[in-house]
Design a protein around this nucleic acid. Structure first.
Lengths: 346, 346
DNA sequence: TTGTAGGCGTTATCAG
DNA sequence: CTGATAACGCCTACAA
């Protein structure tokens, strides 16, 4: 059905070697033959077979990316970033939805190996030893996105979670808040858990605010429903809280929702700052102030980095990308007077 | 680096033909040799090279999917569905973010052809002739997701947009609303535009409600920002509206936001029903009532269908999947009395 | 039950 | 400047 290099050679009355040279613009042919060949290519609508090329070159110009959830607002931005980098560099990307499942992840690793992808991206989840061993055996480069490996020196690109959390809380403090609670998601999470908690506590300490463990409340995940539940939990354990740092936008929006249901007005009665700056942050009511991580960029920078490694242009160092406070409408300025007034109420 | 079939053959002291037979479990070997070969495979950690296989079989077990925006809540669910079908059938999927760009789409079509994918999924956008011609030349099956081609009989999987809109409006009417407006997105959109408008109008007519063109308001897209703007526009053109049908959840949530800003309470003063049932519908304030389309399913059914065609098991007919009204909290019951009371106010 | 050999579409190394 | 030809890793007649 599809024309092959042989067809082109025959049509142009040259050898396949010559066609190949022209295709890969290597030296060794006259202008005339080149034009003849080019014409043959056009009329036959010839396009080289990447599979055959891959076989001999041992390069497929294909990347594999493993994400826990293809459709989450978080991962999908990462995906888009990777895709963009791949596109501009002439690579394709195979997406693998791991569903947080070990067997599914291993399955994909095997497929990706069989398909001889040139490199791997691994996102969000922690890189288990079993995965890493398998990847080592594949012998392809790997870069981590929005996550980091503790024991090994695998290149990664992410934000400084501890610092970002610190800045979020510092922002609250700068706005005059002194009674601040935190809705942490799953504290076992190596990236979104402890580091953000540490940042929260450090910010409190650095500004001479007292800290008690009950100011932090934990959940199984970082979801909207957890946010709803956890806000109530947090409020019941602490009196007089005026601001809250939520470890994800979903948690924050869930908190927003719970606040609304219990008659608390945001930001008048309670300020909330989120984490991530997903699309939903713009669309919540009121629009959510949050500390944003550049997810698309993390993806594209990571993709570029991986391709650089593949093509040996590579600095293979981890990279921390800057985060940023996105001011919207869920954090209020809190004057001293206001604070006292509020105390009276309670 | 990686072991080949030849290495296995040598290690097991058989010919590569025998190894191949065992790999593809075809008849023609004794149990003993099989076990010997299997052991060799294990110890060498051999995995077949899918590139070589693809070259000879002319099958890559790879699908290509073209989506306008990888990271939109809408497309990403479709993606996940396709991915899931592919995974269960042993296929991989290459994702292509077209960014609504013609050249980018054509670029992708070319690489997908070069990489010899076994089939194509095309989503959301209209299938331009240039795309279709190129795909025909590729000679691979195609299925359309959440869109449909008018002139040709290409298999598709989608919802009945006209019917879904009709039901949304009928639902509003059943709740006692008689003054209903519509926020349409881009009316040029072949799928999300006119069909939903038609459904809206038809529902009104079938229930003997008057209809005037100004009850519908249009925007450039289906976005949150458009929703904000368009609600105000709609309200200014029509007095006494008690309910609104928005052609997308984003439009609806934008409308929610605008309503809030202008002091209108949803659903007490104004009811709103959306379209899509994206994740955001659960998380809006109040949670959005909407007519849901099963995006994940559309993706997975479409993926299965495509693979069926590839593997010649194929019924190649288009399929309409059922939509469903998802009742949440943005539509109020409207008694006759209430209606009159509201009229007095205005 | 097993092995030999040709070929899938390219690239690359030789000669000429 | 050009053309044979041997790989790449695998599958599959065809023989044995």
């Amino acid at each position: 059905m599809n024309a092959t290099i042989k067809d082109v050679a025959r049509a142009a009355k040259v050898s396949i070697a010559t066609v190949s040279r022209i295709l890969n613009n290597q030296p060794g042919y006259s202008l005339k033959t080149k034009q003849r060949v080019l014409k043959a290519i056009k009329t036959l609508n010839y396009q080289p077979n990447a599979v055959a090329r891959g076989l001999i070159n041992k390069k497929t110009r294909t990347l594999g990316i493993l994400v826990p959830n293809v459709s989450s607002m978080f991962s999908s931005l990462l995906l888009k970033g990777v895709e963009d980098a791949a596109y501009t560099r002439g690579y394709s990307v195979i997406m693998c939805h791991t569903a947080n499942s070990g067997v599914r992840t291993m399955d994909y690793l095997h497929v990706l190996k069989e398909k001889r992808v040139d490199g791997l991206l691994f996102t969000s989840e922690v890189l288990k030893d079993a995965y890493y061993d398998e990847i080592r055996r594949m012998g392809v480069p790997l870069v981590l996105l929005a996550t980091q490996s503790l024991n090994d020196s695998i290149p990664y690109v992410k934000v400084d979670d501890r610092m970002a959390a610190y800045h979020a809380v510092r922002y609250l403090i700068a706005k005059g808040h002194t009674k601040i609670g935190m809705i942490s998601g799953n504290k076992e999470d190596r990236i979104a858990g402890q580091p953000r908690i540490d940042g929260f506590i450090q910010a409190l300490k650095d500004h001479n605010l007292s800290f008690n463990q009950k100011q932090i409340v934990y959940g199984p995940s970082f979801s909207f429903d957890d946010g709803k539940r956890l806000l109530l939990d947090l409020l019941s354990k602490n009196r007089g809280l005026t601001a809250i740092f939520a470890a994800s936008d979903f948690l924050a929006v869930g908190a927003l929702s719970a606040a609304y249901s219990s008659g608390l007005r945001v930001p008048d009665d309670l300020s909330i700052i989120g984490y991530d700056n997903l699309e939903i942050a713009k669309m919540s009511l009121p629009p959510l102030t949050t500390v944003g991580q550049p997810l698309f960029q993390i993806g594209s920078v990571g993709g570029m980095m991986l391709i650089d490694i593949i093509e040996d242009k590579g600095n293979v160092e981890g990279r921390i990308l800057p985060h940023q406070i996105i001011e919207r409408q869920t954090v209020s300025e809190r004057s001293k007077a206001l604070t006292e007034k509020n105390y009276d109420k309670q």
